[in-house]
Write a protein that binds this DNA or RNA. Structure first.
Lengths: 260, 260
DNA sequence: GTAAAATATCTTGTATACTAGTTATACAAA
DNA sequence: TTTGTATAACTAGTATACAAGATATTTTAC
């Protein structure tokens, strides 16, 4: 375009240059931390967590003004947070009307599970091929931690450890970016999972399944590792019908996308 | 939280209710078109396209003010557009300093290609299993169109048709949402592809590869279809080293993520 | 002449005022 | 009582003003 900052020879006249920002993002830059303590980030995380925990139920309204007053900040950062949520399809913004927590779209849910399985399969296969001993020890430690948390019944911490296990496999495979993608997909599935989670003995089952996956990885049997992981992830596909009865208006069955 | 709009019995006193927004996003809603003509959307798409076309080169600064004046709008919608780009890692925002088009991170690039292959594999396999005759005819028409565009040398239209083919396969598989995910991944790869695209005879090669994929789908051979698709997508993995020489500062080699 | 400090000016982040559109409510008429 | 309409209140989108920090330039000391 007509920006042309460092293409033009700017060394002929020194005093006239109106301070074109000729500081591109240099590699080893100290201030590359970027958005660390931005208010919109805090609001975003809080709202996202509330939505994922179903503390904010699907269909519930989100009032900019209420959030504004709760945090004691202005509309601008709140609005940024809501826009991020809208992109992730966690909320629906109706232009001059209101913002609401989105309902769980079952068709997307199905696809999200399929996509996650595809990505986790790649990760676990690659992890089997090239995981270092230390990585395996880390993963085993996570499984052990899960065991302890399951015994204590600490659901929240167990949930974190669960994530750490899957994240660790992606890291062992050398695919941290793919784990980022899985996490984005997981956001969609998480609300559904939170509704179905409080089943007795579920944590113990997860521990044994994780352990089986790790066993296969350690023996270097890629196919077995993939099979164990698929078996594990298939547990997500409990039939949605039963939960449809419990929370009828939490789910959305037709397609009707809001943004093309 | 303390919103509680339609949970409270609001039918006792009629005149005092301060218009709590008791209109959740009803399913069959007419105004569900949502963001149609929003300025931030226009700016976002234009900037994104410019970045993907490498018209805005990696490292180039993006000045809110310049965009503001170009579109004749205020900073707010421009800012929203830039924030969306920042989430997709197409730009880097340095808080009180400036915004720059991000460099192409080669490690993420590698992972993006792996992820795309995993997702496309699922799509093409499922499409082979359950594509209707009409879907197959549509896909064949797209391939034919690609052939014609390749002969005419219309690179831009060919690019669209290319996307339509992959999108069509996802649709045939019943996974339109997965295509959305692939598109998000594709954004990252697209810039690299645009740099490597102008190779002679590339379009003709793509046509034949697409045709091979479709042949396998039509015969119902899932494994062959997957193999053909993988062979097609592997073409993306040309060694990056050669292009590193041509555009040394377009790529980023170390990790250094900006947002945790 | 060199280097360091001061200053000017740019950048993005935030707050607030205003606009335009939507929905609920009140009210009137049948 | 029901139905249509007017109005009032609330919504998100936008514009603009201000604040805080960073970089480039200028100035000053030596």
């Amino acid at each position: 375009m007509d920006v042309s900052p460092d293409n033009m020879p700017d060394n002929d006249v020194k005093t006239r240059k109106p301070r074109a920002p000729n500081s591109p993002p240099i590699s080893g830059r100290a201030t590359a931390t970027g958005r660390a303590a931005r208010n919109s980030e805090i609001v975003y995380r809080d709202l996202r967590d509330d939505i994922m925990n179903v503390a904010l139920a699907p269909g519930a309204p989100i009032l900019e003004k209420e959030v504004t007053e709760r945090y004691g900040i202005s509309r601008t950062p709140v609005r940024e947070a809501i826009l991020r949520l809208a992109e992730e399809r966690l909320v629906n913004v109706f232009p001059k009307s209101g913002t609401f927590v989105s309902r769980i779209p079952v068709s997307e849910l199905r696809e999200a599970i399929v996509a996650r399985k595809a990505l986790e399969e790649v990760c676990v296969r690659e992890a089997t091929a090239k995981a270092s001993k230390s990585r395996l020890m880390e993963l085993r430690a996570i499984v052990q931690r899960e065991q302890e948390l399951a015994e204590n019944g600490d659901e929240h911490a167990f949930h974190d450890a669960d994530n750490a296990f899957h994240s660790g496999i992606a890291a062992a495979a050398g695919y941290p970016g793919i784990w980022t993608m899985i996490e984005k997909i997981r956001i969609q599935v998480e609300r559904y999972r939170r509704l179905t989670l409080p089943q007795k003995g579920r944590m113990q089952l997860v521990v044994s399944e994780h352990s089986a996956v790790l066993d296969a990885i350690e023996t270097g049997d890629g196919d077995a590792a993939v099979a164990a992981m698929m078996s594990h992830l298939n547990k997500l596909q409990i039939d949605i019908g039963t939960f449809q009865e419990l929370w009828p208006d939490y789910f959305l069955f037709d397609e009707q996308r809001t943004q093309p």
